[in-house]
Design a binder for these strands. Structure first.
Lengths: 213, 213
DNA sequence: TAGATTGTTAATCGATTAACAATC
DNA sequence: TAGATTGTTAATCGATTAACAATC
């Protein structure tokens, strides 16, 4: 199967649709029109319909969308109808936080291995998962069919870790190191650049203060 | 002063220019052309020149750009030539990680206060900053001219915390709660939606596996 | 000066919005 | 049926790329 490439703009909106639909579900709301959803989520009704129609016809004319059904469909579209075998590399401050966060809140992303190169922490456990020697990473990934590697090591080690993960056979990398990793086309890469985000905030603060002058 | 609004696309690229220029500086490289920078950073040379010219004329025809000078200019553009008085609200796992991260790596973003509502942690310290009672947040922000509030509380408490920060007078909010906060136009808001990011990764993994079929 | 590269305008591309026929 | 709302095509808008004159 090879459908038209979905634009990055749409990819970024999909999780947000999911979030709002999840909230509607919790509130017990059964149906919603693109117009109502537009009010909530801030995208135009037209854009919402366009986005959804990229993936199928989920609504009913004259009626709208069933919340439950649409939520399920978006989960499927996002690939959240399966489980991912996941490892975290680098269990410093951020690595530990991400490990716990994923462990407690992210159903479907099962953390099965932790890695670090610091002898002080190798052998310890987080949520019953043992921290292993980083040198064993590639073999572990291969032997355990790991799907996702989460990179929480320093900038200088990140590319090397990514290479190991890829040689081991991961399908995707969630990168928190402040560097743009080089990965082949068939590997999914999502980077969270906290510095960049903070710097963008700084820019916006500056812009808004200048607007007032 | 009121210049034309800078597009979000450019705002997202600016921190990345800064990152690459910083690396060039470390390597001791003195000058760079838009063409060379394009090779490194992946944007077209044309786009790089367009982006930079939004803010001024930083290059020299026939020569290129001085790395040191451009780096400084971008810092200024980003508002990184000053210090920000910052507080963190919610010092659970993620809050602690962000606190340490900001403390150790983010020069210019000074964490002067920590807040939580859990009596168990109130009174404790992280990097010599005492954790205070969340009820005191608004007054503290006002009395200490806090610029930025970092929100690491749960979804259900995030809007309330944001409201307190805003009433206290912050200029910007760095939000890690999985919710789209409502803030007035003159407040800068930058959200890091970790869930959304992970879900986007999931989508990309799915897409790439389907391409192969 | 000749060559290189910027700054900037014009052309293109892609994403968003508007409009409306289809249909529940 | 009449009213509502989708799915989808067409129009618009904005962002990116190409081109080139200006100039170091």
């Amino acid at each position: 199967m090879s459908r038209a490439k979905v634009s990055n703009a749409i990819i970024r909106r999909l999780p947000r649709y999911r979030r709002y639909l999840g909230q509607l579900q919790v509130k017990g709301i059964k149906k919603i029109s693109s117009g109502e959803l537009s009010e909530l989520i801030g995208y135009t009704a037209s854009q919402i319909r366009q986005d959804l129609n990229t993936f199928g016809e989920f609504g009913q004319q004259g009626y709208g969308y069933e919340v439950d059904k649409l939520y399920k469909e978006i989960n499927k579209i996002l690939g959240l109808d399966r489980e991912y075998r996941t490892v975290v590399v680098g269990v410093g401050n951020l690595g530990q936080a991400i490990t716990n966060y994923t462990y407690y809140y992210k159903i479907g992303f099962n953390i099965i291995g932790l890695f670090d190169k610091d002898p002080e922490v190798i052998g310890k456990e987080i949520n019953d998962v043992k921290i292993m020697d980083g040198n064993l990473l590639e073999d572990y990934v291969r032997d355990n069919a790991v799907d996702i590697g989460i990179i929480c090591v320093t900038r200088d080690n990140a590319q090397e870790v990514a290479d190991s993960l890829i040689r081991g056979g991961v399908k995707g990398i969630w990168n928190f190191a402040p560097i743009d990793l080089d990965v082949p086309d068939d590997i999914a890469l999502e980077s969270v650049h906290l510095s960049d985000s903070l710097h963008a905030l700084s820019f916006m603060i500056k812009s808004k203060s200048e607007e007032e002058e």
